[in-house]
């Protein structure tokens, strides 16, 4: 099939960007979206043009590197799918496709469709861990965790840190990302000791990074490729409130 691509081009964080239009032909429905861009890029290289920069790595939906807003939706139209797992059969012949980077102030554009998501790393560095020394752990089975708690913690822990939540949020808020980690560790017995400080430190860092504030639009959970739900955000809010009432 043939497609018209409108792709955001921006040479560095400071320069203004614009859309370049590309007409691609002979796109196979069995191609992934990124493979379609690979083919485009190879053609551009051959014709002495700058290929389109975009982030990717595992191409199996788990590393969280890929990050395109396709036709106004982070990771494209398919539910619970990262861009790398989006296939061209979701598009129709002759379609016009708009490809933009994550547009979040806290994720400055590096080049074209590549953004800098280190703000997410810094939020986790602020407290998204359990302080346990290597070798200082007791036997694994001395910490029983009820199955339903472990399952819920796991669901929150599946976050891939792609940034689609902030990209989708009308307020460009990182709440779902932060809340997922807080739920993951806050649910488990291992995470209780630092529960108060964790939620405080991570949220303080989130505010510092310049993300917007959650306004409960719930766009994040619709965009999340791992379907993490906004119940995590409610839980995070509760945990923060709780930190002002209870010592531990």
């Amino acid at each position: 099939m043939n497609l018209t691509l409108n792709i955001w081009r921006q040479s560095d964080p400071e320069s203004p960007g614009n859309f370049d239009v590309f007409n691609v032909s002979d796109v196979s429905p069995d191609m992934s979206f990124l493979e379609m861009l690979d083919v485009l890029n190879e053609g551009l290289i051959v014709h002495d043009e700058e290929p389109v920069a975009f982030d990717y790595d595992c191409r199996e939906g788990i590393c969280g590197a890929c990050s395109l807003v396709i036709n106004g939706s982070p990771h494209g139209p398919q539910k619970a799918t990262t861009t790398c797992q989006l296939y061209m059969r979701e598009f129709s012949d002759g379609e016009e496709v708009w490809i933009e980077p994550w547009r979040v102030g806290a994720f400055p554009v590096v080049r074209d469709l590549v953004v800098d998501r280190s703000a997410y790393d810094r939020i986790l560095q602020a407290g998204g861990f359990v302080s346990v020394r290597t070798g200082a752990a007791p036997d694994g089975n001395t910490i029983p965790v009820p199955k339903d708690v472990a399952d819920r913690a796991f669901t929150s822990a599946t976050c891939i840190g792609c940034g689609a939540c902030a990209a989708a949020c009308p307020s460009a808020s990182a709440s779902l990302f932060v809340a997922a980690k807080i739920s993951h560790l806050g649910l488990l017995p291992q995470g209780q000791t630092e529960r108060n400080s964790r939620v405080r430190m991570m949220l303080a860092q989130m505010d510092k990074e310049g993300f917007g504030h959650c306004s409960n639009h719930a766009e994040c959970q619709s965009a999340c490729p791992k379907e993490i739900d906004i119940g995590r955000i409610a839980r995070m809010n509760r945990d923060l409130g709780r930190s002002f009432i209870r010592r531990t």
């Binding site: 036709n71 933009e100 547009r103 009308p170 917007g212």
Partner: peptide, 11 residues
């Protein structure tokens, strides 16, 4: 919140 997204989405 408005400042958190300096450049709007075109789509």
């Amino acid at each position: 919140n408005r400042r958190a997204r300096p450049e709007r989405y075109y789509k």
